[in-house]
Amino acid sequence: MKKVLMPLVMVAVLALVPFLGVQYAGLSYLFGVIIPYTAIVVLLAGFLLRLVDWLRRPVPFRIPTTCGQEKSLEWIKYDRFESPHRFWEAAARVLSEVFLFRSLFRNTKAELHKDSNLAYGSHKWLWLGGLAFHWSLLIIVLRHSRFFFVMVPGFTEFLDHADGFLDVTLPTFYITNAVVLAAITFLVFRRLNDAKMRLISLQTDYFPLFLIAAIVVVGILMRYLTRLDIMPVKDQMLRLVNFSFDDPGEIGTLFYVHLFLVSVLAIYFPFSKLMHAGAIFLSPTRNLCNNSREKRHVNPWNASIKFKTYSEYEDNYRDKMKKANLPIEKQ
């Protein structure tokens, strides 16, 4: 399975680069300052560029996929979120996709029921796995905000407490760490397990999963195994946030591995399928109202075409039309 091994090897090599670089070549300035700055610039600029690149292309037609009753006659209840009629309904539809993965929730799988009748049963594993993966990533990223502020913000404290309520280890065990690893394992496993998924998966599908897994694992190692001293880490992050180009202090090598892999992810982001994070807001089948008969949608490049007019038609068929007693314009 070349397409699974290759990305795995790539991630391993990527992890090794900063380790060797910092441990043996003393390149802590490169890995602690230059690369993180580059990465953040590439991420922000790249993401923005991609968004602009999409936004500047017109939406010629109003093509929502209607997944519920349209608004028509007054006595028929319409489906606000599956067939939105007003802007806020369409907005809610998009947000429910973003936060709840609404469409994935619909997932079905054909199965045989006891009465030997075929039914398409609900199949929510992908929804659950995807949701667990994305939400824990979000919480983990937000938790990391403690490194970017001198005073830890209130919501970070709150997240920290909530996430660490299973206070079983020291330092506190975060549920999201376990969840995200479990979710990644599931997501990789389902790509390998099912013949269909094996066939459709590309290297570029495995790579980000492995990369994120590596970032999480290194993070966990730092926190629980090597018990990295976090004060210098925070100092360095605060320096970065304040646009300082000073030398980083003495920090454990694992931190550089973690930071480098995050930088790679940031750089990879705008050029890859990870941009689905932006695309989901723009999808014309989801973010448009289903009111195209009520309100005219304008196409900025509406092609001018020549169609066959009635008078041309009548010219062709006048005699036949007369015979059939059809009214005609010209005798």
Binding site: N107, L126, K273, M275, I280
Partner: peptide, 8 residues
């Protein structure tokens, strides 16, 4: 651009 090949 946006397909992640999730297989849904």
């Amino acid at each position: 651009d946006s397909c992640v090949r999730c297989g849904a």
